[in-house]
Nucleic acid binder design. Structure first.
Length: 348
DNA sequence: AATCCGGGGTC
DNA sequence: GACCCAGGATT
C-alpha cells in the first residue's frame, strides 16, 4: 500500500472528533483555520466555538466592531489575525455578497490567508486539489522521505511543496490533507513520535537511519530582545487611565496603561526615571510599587512592572494617547494577556 | 531572506 | 531553556 493510502487509513481510525470537521462551509473552515495558525488545537477550540456563536456567518462577522473582535480574541495572541479577519469578512460581504469563496485562487487574495490556509479551505470545502504544507507536513515528509533541506529555507519550502503536490494526486484532497496533518500531530510528533506503532515505519527514511530526532532540519537563531515596561495604574473615583497601543509594536490596537519603557530595570531612587514620571503625572505624584511580572513573547522578553499612582495630574493635551475612562468600560476593552490578568487580579 | 507578531504546551 | 504549534505580513 502507498504512503498516502496508509496515512488515510490511519486517519480514518485515529482521527479526533473536532468541531470544525464535518462541515464544508468555507466560512466555518476559514474561522477554524485562522484561529489554528500557530496555535494548538486544544488552545484554539474554545475560541472557535466562541467566535462561531457570536458570528454564525460571515455577514454577522462583518458587522462587528474591531474592539468586539479583539476582545473575543483576547489571550490568543497574534492579534493581526483578528484584525485581518474583520477586514476579510467585510471584503467578502462587499465583493462576494457574503458568499465565502472556495477556490484557492480567490482565497489566496484574502488578507490573512496564505498558501497553507488557501489550500486548507479550498480542499476542505470543495475538494480542490491543493496540498497543505504546515508544520506537521514538513515534519512527516522530511522524516519519511529523508529530506534534509531546511524547511524554512527558500529551496526547502519549494521542495516540500512540490513533493506535497505530487503526493496528493489521485488522493481525495479533503481527507488526505487532514490525514497527513493529523498524523503529524498525533503520531509523527516533534518529540517522541510513536514509531513503534507507525503504519509507515518500514518505508520511513528517518526511522531506518535513526535520524528521527534530527529531522526536520530548521535554521533558526532568533535573537530575543529584552524590554522593561513600567506601567502606571491611575485610578480616580470610577475612572482609570488607559492608552491604546499603536502600530509598529506588539499588541497593536489593544489597550494597556500609561507606560514608560526603559532599557533596564528601574530603581525607585533613579532620578532619571522619577523625572520622567513627574513629567507625565505632575510633581505631587505618589508612587507605589505593585508587582513585577516576566512576560515571554516569541522575539521579546518583557519585564513588566506595575506602579500604583495617586494624586496625579495628566496633561491630556500633551499626551493625547492617554485617556481616562470608566473602569467598567475599560474592562470591556481588548487587552494584552498580561494586562487582562492584572485587571482580573487587582481591579474589582 | 530575515524578522516580526503571542501565548501556551512539552520535554 | 529550547522547541513547537493545522502561518502570514512586512521589510
Amino acid at each position: 500500500m502507498s504512503f498516502q493510502s496508509e496515512i488515510v487509513k490511519w486517519y480514518l481510525s485515529n482521527k479526533r472528533d473536532l468541531p470544525w470537521r464535518d462541515t464544508t462551509d468555507p466560512y466555518v473552515i476559514w474561522l477554524s483555520e485562522i484561529i489554528l495558525q500557530q496555535t494548538r488545537v486544544e488552545q484554539g477550540k474554545p475560541y472557535f466555538l466562541k467566535f462561531l456563536e457570536n458570528f454564525p456567518n460571515v455577514s454577522a462577522f462583518a458587522s462587528a466592531s474591531e474592539e468586539q473582535v479583539l476582545k473575543l480574541w483576547q489571550g490568543l495572541g497574534y492579534y493581526s489575525r483578528g484584525r485581518n479577519m474583520l477586514y476579510t469578512a467585510r471584503y467578502v460581504v462587499a465583493n462576494y455578497g457574503g458568499q465565502f469563496p472556495t477556490s484557492y485562487e480567490q482565497l489566496i487574495k484574502l488578507k490573512g490567508v496564505g498558501s497553507y490556509t488557501a489550500a486548507a479551505i479550498s480542499s476542505f470545502s470543495s475538494n480542490e486539489q491543493q496540498a497543505v504544507v504546515d508544520g506537521n507536513v514538513y515534519r512527516v515528509l522530511s522524516r519519511y522521505f529523508g529530506i534534509e533541506e531546511p524547511i524554512n529555507s527558500n529551496l526547502g519550502q519549494k521542495m516540500f511543496s512540490e513533493l506535497a503536490k505530487e503526493l496528493i494526486i489521485d488522493q481525495e484532497p479533503a481527507i488526505y490533507n487532514q490525514a497527513i496533518m493529523e498524523f503529524g500531530a498525533l503520531q509523527c510528533k516533534p518529540k517522541s513520535p510513536v514509531c513503534s506503532e507507525c503504519p509507515v515505519q518500514l518505508g520511513c527514511y528517518a526511522f531506518k537511519h535513526k535520524k528521527i530526532d534530527q529531522l526536520p532540519v530548521k535554521l533558526k537563531k532568533v535573537k530575543v530582545r529584552k524590554r522593561w515596561f513600567n506601567y502606571f495604574v491611575g485610578i480616580t473615583g470610577d475612572e482609570i487611565l488607559t492608552k491604546q497601543r499603536m502600530p509598529g509594536d506588539v499588541w497593536q490596537h489593544l489597550y494597556d496603561f500609561p507606560l514608560i519603557e526603559t532599557e533596564e530595570e528601574v530603581s525607585m531612587t533613579s532620578n532619571e526615571f522619577l523625572t520622567q514620571v513627574e513629567k507625565l503625572f505632575g510633581k505631587d505624584l505618589e508612587l507605589k510599587v505593585l508587582e513585577g511580572k516576566k512576560h515571554i513573547l516569541t522575539h521579546q522578553i518583557i519585564y513588566v512592572q506595575f506602579f500604583a499612582i495617586d494624586n496625579y495630574i495628566v496633561n491630556f493635551n500633551q499626551h493625547a494617547e492617554i485617556k481616562s475612562v470608566k473602569i467598567e468600560a475599560f474592562k470591556q476593552l481588548p487587552h494584552p494577556k498580561i494586562i487582562g490578568d492584572f485587571i482580573e487580579k487587582h481591579i474589582d
